[in-house]
């Protein structure tokens, strides 16, 4: 545990760092930093398909590892928890688990159809000034905010 590691790093530090990371991968490999593409490669790798970009599998593993490093080593770990405190406060587990699963399926399906996710279109596509990525980003921000407000209404403001 590193005592000086911030509980939550400020956006004006992490944001530009993320920007430089995006530029770095373009400078080294002419590749964007999108995460859903790594999921596609990971699933191809697990199913032993040919034409798998193995370095994307390493990238996939790296995201998990980087998270592990910060949440368990740099900070003192929280131990085993649900990860959905606010949701668990409102719903019993019998509703929370199917809800999270359904949400994840919808976002996975949407990411496949749109050709990317928050990191792909939201960050890397927008950074390339891609009109398609800007359109996807504006769309998912809008439906994300709208869905959240509908969830708030349905739960009487509890969420």
């Amino acid at each position: 545990m590193i005592d000086s590691f911030p509980d939550r790093m400020a956006w004006y530090v992490a944001g530009p760092a993320l920007g430089l990371l995006i530029v770095g991968l373009f400078m080294l490999a002419n590749q964007p930093l999108g995460a859903s593409g790594a999921y596609v490669q990971m699933s191809g790798f697990v199913r032993r398909k040919s034409e798998v970009a193995v370095w994307r599998v390493w990238y996939f593993v790296g995201m998990f590892f980087g998270g592990l490093l910060v949440t368990q080593v740099f900070r003192s770990g929280r131990g085993i928890h649900s990860g959905y405190d606010a949701l668990v406060d409102v719903f019993p587990m019998s509703i929370t688990v199917p809800l999270v699963f359904a949400g994840a399926v919808i976002l996975g399906y949407g990411a496949a159809m749109a050709g990317g996710c928050t990191s792909g279109h939201g960050l890397c596509g927008t950074a390339q000034r891609s009109p398609a990525s800007v359109a996807v980003t504006v769309t998912f921000m809008a439906t994300g905010i709208a869905t959240t407000f509908i969830l708030r209404l349905l739960t009487g403001g509890a969420l």
Partner: peptide
């Protein structure tokens, strides 16, 4: 796809 992604993102509170 973007519209669907946003809905799932808000429900699951996470992305890939």
């Amino acid at each position: 796809g973007g519209a669907l992604f946003g809905v799932g993102w808000a429900i699951a509170g996470t992305c890939p």
